[in-house]
Simulated scan of single mutants.
Amino acid sequence: MRKKKADKAGWGAHEQPQQHYLVEPRHLAGGGDLRHVTEYLRASGWKDKSKTGGPLVFDSPDKNVRVGYDPFTQPGGWTISGKATASQDAWHATFGQQVPVEIVAGLTDALHQPRSAHAPNVWAPLVQAGWTTEQKGHVTSVSPDKNAWLQFHQTGPGEAFWWAGARTEHGRTWDVVITATTPMHLVQAFTAALADPDPVMRPLGHVPASNRIRTTSNSVLPSQLAAWQQARITAARAATWARNAWAAGQPRATARPSATAGKARARR
């Protein structure tokens, strides 16, 4: 009995570490685990509309935004679409399959986070990270390693979009296209994730073959990975609870006294 209790108490000591790598720059790290995006959406109250064996589809609680991932079509990848509302035009963003999930999550996480009181500045995160910006036909910002870029591509009135991409010595690895009607705070959240200097983790066998990346080997326990993933999910649930609690505490709109009085007089 003592031995069984000791084994149960020290179960973590019997885990087998798994080989992972910290990869930088993150824009060349490869796609990564889709659950980094989808589990955060699920924890934030999004409805999973996916069909077994088909593309992933998630709808926002208000049904105004849809996030999908389709690996079965070419070129495939992520699509994020927003419906037109009274205060917002319809918008659309596409992310190739090899866009790191941490960069995709920059935009998708921001879909249910409070907006900053400051006006969005799409270029600011890039400038702060040492990207160089120039205007030769289209405003373009290029990463310090020259392997990633963001461009505001405008060919005429009403013909504009954001275009980002990355390449290695083997050629183009991914593209992102975001319509000009996309809310600016979402575009800024994307550029902040794109320019983030922190490396991202990839398991053995999932590190792209390129001499333009730097890797640091790490042995990671499965319980550590689970704890890191759970912390992200817990943060999403807490933010969702706080947002819903705040909305529930707001006073409901009531008829103005003058309007009520007018109706009362009319009934006399």
Rank of each mutant, 00 (worst) to 15 (best):
K47E: 07
K47T: 12
K47Q: 13
K47G: 00
D48S: 09
K49I: 02
K49Q: 12
K49L: 14
K49R: 12
S50V: 11
S50C: 10
S50A: 07
K51E: 14
G53A: 01
G53K: 03
G54M: 11
P55H: 05
P55R: 13
P55E: 08
P55K: 15
L56W: 13
L56H: 11
V57A: 10
F58N: 05
F58S: 06
F58H: 10
D59M: 07
D59R: 09
S60N: 02
P61V: 12
D62W: 12
K63G: 09
K63W: 13
N64A: 11
N64D: 12
N64L: 14
N64Q: 15
V65M: 09
V65L: 12
R66A: 05
R66L: 14
R66K: 13
V67F: 15
V67D: 01
G68Y: 09
G68H: 03
G68S: 14
Y69I: 03
Y69K: 05
Y69Q: 00
Y69D: 01
Y69M: 01
Y69P: 05
D70F: 11
D70M: 06
D70Y: 11
P71Y: 15
P71E: 05
T73G: 01
Q74I: 10
P75S: 04
G76M: 03
G76C: 03
G77Q: 06
G77K: 07
G77A: 08
G77L: 04
W78G: 02
W78N: 04
W78Q: 04
W78V: 01
W78C: 00
W78H: 07
W78S: 02
T79C: 00
I80N: 09
I80C: 09
S81M: 11
S81N: 14
S81T: 14
S81Y: 14
G82T: 11
G82N: 08
G82R: 08
K83Y: 09
A84V: 06
A84Q: 14
A84G: 03
A84W: 07
T85N: 03
T85Q: 03
T85S: 01
T85R: 04
T85A: 04
A86Y: 03
Q88L: 06
Q88T: 09
D89C: 04
A90F: 09
W91Y: 11
W91A: 06
W91T: 03
H92P: 00
A93F: 12
A93I: 07
T94A: 13
T94S: 13
T94H: 13
T94P: 02
T94E: 10
F95D: 05
G96L: 04
Q97T: 08
Q98G: 01
Q98A: 08
Q98R: 08
Q98Y: 02
Q98V: 00
V99K: 02
V99E: 05
V99P: 02
V99A: 04
V99G: 00
P100A: 01
P100W: 08
V101F: 12
V101K: 11
V101I: 10
V101D: 13
E102S: 08
E102K: 06
I103G: 07
A105W: 11
A105S: 08
A105I: 00
A105R: 13
G106Q: 09
G106L: 07
G106A: 01
